[in-house]
Design a protein around this nucleic acid. Structure first.
Length: 578
DNA sequence: GCCGTTTTCGGCCCGACTGTTTTCAGTCG
């Protein structure tokens, strides 16, 4: 029985083929919409099979296709297209800058059917001869091919960590494993990771090594010894997982060693050396008598060196040992400190869930409040709200608040900062909202002066509470826009404007370094928000909290650790210029 | 192909941007 997702994928593929084939684009889009409708169906397919046309976006034609897929696992229409057009055209469509029309032209005129044939055609300078193409588009496409073909050196933490946790769970279920933990950059919550490190304690290394090599998640075994097994698992790309196998006595020091960072470990060894000790993954060797100390847990290891426990997120070699020795480390913010999410979307704009669903999810996460902040009118693609819609939405928020106990939904908006720095709604509209988040979604290419002035104008608006994803970077995809951040930090602190740490793993914006600078040097307040577009995304707060901890933040630096009462007062405070 | 009605056709989120053109097609979000 195909899953909702399987059926949606087939409908999307159909839509893509239709577009390349020159079908009526609205017909193609109808299949795409039907795909989305199936993807978001909550009810089981078997149950809804006879009733498909009652679903918005599914009509007579698409219902027949879906029913055929449910019953046979295939679509004869899709099979016809697969027969008619080469499959490689689908991968061409993924290249940024190439749409269906261009793919069709490349196929019909040059018989290009896949990415490598396109690359050859570009190198022969054939593409520039086609109508609508030129030398510049050749260069852009070549760059896109090269970017797409090579795995990025590092992958976003949020893409790899779930896979790593799955592998860890599988390892922990091996009976002979005493203890196991993630280590390395994943444990330090670095925003991107190259590979996965896992430390495993056991009395039977040979057996565990064999078991690890044959775990269900493993796609390929790179090498297998008795102390280290390296395997490949599937995330966005194949990711290497290095599993280190040690004795239970060595576990704490091995975990410390393989957690790093390299810079942190260098400092630790220096400190040990001054005491006449030698630190390695196997323990702390006392050079005087050759005895090696081992520990139950990392805390005892640190204490032995005269240090407080240093959380993995701080182990960057950026002063954590010195500060730890001299004044102790800050009490870093933890996930349990977060009392609400101030940036989520609903079906009113480009979110997938109703306001009630988002509120219930927030409540079951233990939150006190959640702010619904849908897009403003300029962001048409994301279903930006007119002023009228915004007011209607307010009524729904009021209703949900009446219906639900134990969670408060705040009426908010994510208002666009237009290219000239004006906001997408007038002040008298913003004034009526509980939470106003402002952000840039257009004209990313402005020079530093223009962009800085543009954002400063939003910072200085008395009704703007939070600037969302302040630098606009997307990991592995888009750099930050040109921006004088210190100037923004300064004005934000002066005006009481909060800057966001967007917890989406593709953003993590502000990043750890910015956060530490903004808070330590300027006294800026930070809000950690998920920007959730569906209820499940609320859990992404984990990556925000991890990043905040890397930036040395405590709960006192963070807006949404406040209770609802204090939060509301703080938000009102800005309007009154205090 | 879907949908809604100003119901059985005609519109379908639409504006910015780019590189190609010489007034615009294609892509993107």
């Amino acid at each position: 029985m195909p899953s909702h997702r399987d059926i949606a994928e087939m409908l999307f593929e159909l839509a893509n083929y239709m577009e390349i084939d020159g079908e009526n684009p609205y017909r193609a889009n109808a299949y795409r919409r039907a795909g989305q409708a199936v993807e978001h169906l909550k009810r089981p397919l078997e149950e809804i099979k006879e009733d498909l046309q009652s679903v918005a976006g599914i009509g007579k034609g698409t219902a027949a296709v879906i029913r055929e897929i449910i019953e046979t696992g295939e679509s004869s229409l899709l099979n016809e297209y697969r027969e008619k057009l080469p499959k490689g055209l689908m991968s061409l469509l993924e290249l940024p800058g190439l749409g269906p029309k261009s793919v069709k032209t490349l196929y019909k005129k040059l018989n290009v059917t896949n990415v490598s044939e396109l690359e050859q055609a570009i190198r022969r300078q054939q593409v520039r001869t086609l109508p609508g193409f030129g030398a510049k588009s050749e260069a852009k496409l070549l760059e896109a091919i090269q970017r797409a073909g090579t795995r990025p050196e590092r992958l976003p933490l949020g893409h790899v960590r779930p896979v790593a946790e799955e592998v860890l769970t599988q390892i922990q279920s091996i009976p002979e494993v005493v203890q196991a933990s993630l280590a390395g950059s994943i444990r330090r919550m670095e925003e991107t990771v190259k590979d996965v490190d896992i430390v495993v304690a056991t009395e039977q290394p040979d057996h565990v090594a064999r078991e690890v090599a044959s775990l269900p998640a493993v796609e390929e075994v790179v090498n297998r010894g008795t102390t280290k097994v390296s395997v490949l698992v599937a995330a966005d790309w194949l990711v290497q997982v290095d599993v280190r196998i040690v004795t239970p006595e060595q576990y704490a020091t091995a975990l410390h060693h393989f957690t790093g960072s390299k810079e942190h470990n260098v400092r630790i060894r220096q400190i040990a050396k001054e005491k006449g000790w030698k630190v390695s993954e196997y323990g702390v060797e006392q050079l005087a008598d050759g005895r090696t100390l081992t520990f139950d847990e990392e805390t005892h290891f640190y204490n032995e060196l005269g240090l407080p426990y240093i959380p993995p997120e701080l182990r960057q070699g950026k002063g954590e040992t010195e500060v730890g020795l001299e004044q102790g480390l800050p009490d870093l913010v933890a996930e349990k400190d977060i009392r609400g999410d101030l940036h989520v979307h609903s079906q009113w704009s480009d979110g997938h869930c109703t306001i009630r669903e988002m509120a219930e999810a927030a409540k079951s996460k233990g939150y006190e409040y959640v702010a619904v902040t849908d897009h403003s009118r300029s962001l048409v693609i994301a279903g930006g709200l007119s002023v009228e819609d915004l007011m209607k939405q307010r009524e729904e928020i009021d209703r949900v608040n009446r219906e639900l106990d134990g969670i408060t939904v705040l009426a908010g908006v994510e208002v666009d900062i237009l290219p000239d720095g004006r906001l997408d709604y007038p002040d008298d509209v913003l004034e009526q909202l509980d939470v106003v988040i402002a952000s840039v979604h257009s004209a990313f290419g402005q020079d530093e002066r223009t962009m800085t002035k543009r954002i400063l104008r939003a910072v200085e608006n008395p009704y703007v509470h939070v600037i969302a994803h302040p630098t606009g970077r997307l990991l592995n995809r888009r750099d930050s826009y040109a921006l004088n951040l210190p100037e923004i930090f300064k004005r934000a602190a002066d005006t009481g404007t909060v800057l966001e740490l967007n917890a989406n793993p593709n953003r993590l914006d502000l990043n750890d370094r910015h956060l530490r600078q903004a808070v330590e040097d300027y006294g800026v307040t930070i809000a950690i928000n998920t920007d959730a577009h569906r209820a499940e995304h609320l859990h992404l707060i984990t990556y925000g909290v991890g990043t905040a901890r890397r930036g040395w933040l405590t709960r006192h630096h963070i807006l949404n650790t406040l209770t609802l009462d204090k939060l509301v007062k703080r938000l009102k405070g800005k309007n009154h210029g205090s």
